[in-house]
């Protein structure tokens, strides 16, 4: 099966929830395939967003580009509806002045229909996420 970036709106993926939104920097920017655009948080932490693949996927590798994110929790669900999330990955990120955070995660047990990203703390009042890519394969359709 073909390996693709599963986190792209052009692949049918959607952000179905985000706790913050500035209409100039909406959460769709995370999955638009454009590294120049970003989603920004607008207040207190934690902050979260949920990505829906609209199909069953198996993720092998995640790359998250962000700024000022300190702790990140990732939960996943294999349900048809965005529920029954289980804890999957937790990371403490570092911040380097003048550079984007580029967090690469090799995933075990990457079966999912939804991913939920929770930014539990940040290095600043605000944090931003530029892109998330999930390399893997589309397993089957939801029906």
């Amino acid at each position: 099966m073909r390996k693709v970036d599963l986190c792209l709106s052009s692949e049918g993926t959607e952000v179905i929830l985000a706790t913050s939104s500035d209409e100039k920097h909406p959460p769709e920017n995370i999955i638009d395939g454009n590294p120049e655009t970003f989603w920004t948080t607008t207040g207190m932490f934690p902050q979260e967003f949920i990505i829906c693949f609209h199909k069953r996927v198996r993720i092998e590798r995640l790359v998250i580009q962000s700024c000022f994110v300190r702790t990140l929790q990732i939960e996943k669900s294999t349900s048809k509806e965005p529920d029954s999330f289980e804890q999957w990955i937790e990371r403490d990120l570092v911040h380097t002045e003048g550079q984007l955070q580029n967090e690469e995660i090799m995933a075990n047990d990457g079966h999912a229909t939804y991913l939920r990203f929770i930014i539990t703390s940040a290095f600043d009042h605000f944090a931003s996420v530029y892109s998330i890519s999930a390399e893997g394969i589309a397993v089957s359709n939801l029906s």
Partner: peptide, 17 residues
């Protein structure tokens, strides 16, 4: 002040993109 901090951070985010 908080709004100003937000605007400043947006500048940083844009510059890093």
């Amino acid at each position: 002040q908080f709004h100003q901090l937000y605007r400043e951070k947006l500048e940083v985010f844009h510059a890093l993109a």
